[in-house]
Amino acid sequence: MSLMFEEIDSQATPLGQISLRRRSMPAFGDRDIYEVKLGDEFLMSSMFVEAEEALSTLGLAAVQGDRLSVVVGGLGLGYTAVAALNDERIDELLVVDALETVIGWHRDERVPLGKVLNADPRNRYVLGSFFDLATDPARGFDPEQPGRQFDAILLDIDHSPSEYLNPANASFYTTDNLALMAQQLKPEGVFAMWSQNLPDPDFEALLRTVFARVESHVISFYNPFQGGESTNSVYVCVK
């Protein structure tokens, strides 16, 4: 078993001090738990990854066709991106993250899934603000092909549609800005988004102002700290 706690890295970023830590917890056996803190706030953890993986599996299940081009907004610890690459239809995956530090942890393989992402030629990291790129369709997500469209956009950055990693992100959750993002989807393309909360009827109504079909999925997983199940949700929208 590894050390009970180790800080692997800590760096200043435009959003504040970000740190990567590894710890062991008896409730998880011999599995190392990786976690990221932004200031005093826990940003992400490998304790529970079922919903992050479901963001990819549910989102891509709604996509028709082959040779798919997909955007993942928010690299995190890599679980959404790796789950997307498990879909053999993926031809190219762009993983957009605003923090060079987080991309560096994966490129340098300081987190376990960095090796998986680096070894897959379909994966490409894009350094930039997802929200800035989402609302600028003329520029778009791909710095090599401005204005291109994608089969799916998978988003896991904010804690929920009403709880933001950065207060500036709040402006994204409007009809106008969601519609700008939707311009970057191909016809019948899919937008999917993770939330730590149960589905929000007001947000579902907002999504329906932009997308032809909106479905919400509740993801349940065992939480040993609560002695029972916890839940997250995934919204899946078809253009």
Rank of each mutant, 00 (worst) to 15 (best):
A27E: 15
A27F: 12
A27N: 10
F28T: 10
F28L: 02
G29V: 09
G29A: 09
D30P: 12
D30E: 14
D32R: 14
D32Q: 13
D32I: 11
D32N: 14
D32K: 14
I33R: 03
I33M: 05
Y34S: 07
Y34Q: 06
Y34M: 03
E35P: 09
E35D: 13
E35F: 05
V36A: 06
V36M: 12
V36K: 00
V36Q: 00
K37H: 14
K37N: 08
K37Y: 07
L38P: 01
L38M: 13
L38D: 11
G39I: 04
G39Y: 04
G39P: 07
G39Q: 01
G39S: 10
D40V: 15
D40T: 15
E41M: 12
E41K: 11
F42V: 05
L43N: 00
M44S: 10
M44I: 02
S45T: 13
S46E: 04
S46G: 13
S46R: 02
S46T: 12
F48P: 04
F48C: 04
F48D: 09
F48G: 05
V49S: 10
V49I: 11
V49W: 08
V49E: 02
V49F: 06
E50Q: 14
A51G: 09
A51Y: 06
A51C: 03
E52N: 09
E53F: 10
E53Q: 15
A54T: 03
A54F: 00
A54H: 01
L55R: 03
L55C: 06
L55G: 03
L55V: 01
S56A: 15
T57A: 06
L58P: 07
L58H: 07
L58C: 09
L58W: 07
G59E: 03
G59W: 03
A61N: 15
A61M: 11
A61W: 07
A62S: 11
A62K: 13
A62V: 05
A62G: 01
V63H: 13
V63W: 11
V63A: 14
Q64D: 11
Q64K: 14
Q64V: 11
G65E: 09
D66S: 15
D66P: 04
D66T: 14
D66Q: 14
R67H: 15
R67W: 10
R67V: 12
R67Y: 12
L68E: 08
L68D: 11
L68Q: 04
L68M: 08
S69W: 10
S69I: 09
S69T: 15
V70A: 04
V70F: 03
V71N: 11
V72F: 04
V72W: 02
V72C: 04
G74C: 02
G74D: 00
L75E: 02
L75M: 09
L75P: 03
G76E: 00
G76D: 00
G76R: 00
G76P: 01
L77A: 08
G78Y: 03
G78T: 02
G78P: 10
Y79A: 13
T80F: 00
T80N: 01
T80L: 08
T80M: 04
A81F: 05
V82W: 02
V82D: 06
V82K: 06
A83Q: 06
A83F: 06
A84C: 12
L85E: 00
L85K: 01
L85T: 10
N86W: 05
N86I: 03
D87N: 08
D87E: 13
E88K: 15
E88N: 12
R89W: 03
R89M: 06
I90S: 01
I90G: 09
D91Q: 15
D91I: 06
D91M: 13
D91H: 14
